[in-house]
């Protein structure tokens, strides 16, 4: 009996430990409501900021609303092809409940405008292979699964821009 208990405890500790490791690594899988394909849209000549409005003129880059999709995708037209999951939201005239994966921490002031429009940095610099991604994002699109201060400071030092704490921390 004690042996069984010990095994159970060991299995429990391993499971909990494993969960913490996976969480810290950022490998948690998030299911998006629509199987969005970034690559298809980029190959079609679309700019990131066309859907992620605000990326060039604001602090936050927006998540597209259904009416953005509806500009091109029409349920009753064969081209461009409208996937079933998107058609459901278009027909119902409902917002797609995208799962937000990128959140700026509240003590950080990060302006997309400052980086995208003013510094002319390509989205891929921070968001990695986002333009080549054919499946929807199930994790934050950063090289190390999350954007830590090292990602920011490395680039700021390399580009010889300010590393004053107050420039990014509010």
């Amino acid at each position: 009996m004690p042996k069984t208990l010990a095994i159970l405890v060991l299995v429990g500790v391993t499971a909990i430990g494993g969960w913490f490791v996976v969480s810290a690594w950022g490998g948690g899988s998030v299911q998006q409501p629509v199987a969005y394909n970034h690559k298809v849209h980029i190959d079609a000549g679309m700019e990131c900021a066309a859907c992620h409005t605000g990326a060039e003129e604001g602090t936050h880059a927006g998540i597209p609303t259904t009416d953005k999709c509806a500009l091109c995708h029409k349920v009753d037209r064969p081209y461009p092809k409208t996937p079933k999951d998107l058609a459901f939201y278009l027909k119902a005239n409902k917002e797609i409940p995208w799962r937000q994966l990128h959140r700026t921490r509240r003590h950080v002031y990060f302006s997309h405008q400052r980086h995208v429009a003013l510094a002319g940095i390509d989205c891929e610099k921070c968001h990695g292979d986002v333009k080549k991604k054919t499946t929807p994002f199930d994790r934050a699109a950063f090289p190390d699964r999350q954007a830590g201060m090292n990602l920011c400071v490395d680039c700021h030092r390399k580009e010889k821009v300010t590393t004053d704490c107050m420039a990014c921390h509010r």
Partner: peptide, 12 residues
């Protein structure tokens, strides 16, 4: 800081 403002970084 370099502009003379005395900063306070709360999370530090």
């Amino acid at each position: 800081n370099h502009e003379g403002t005395v900063a306070q970084i709360y999370w530090r």
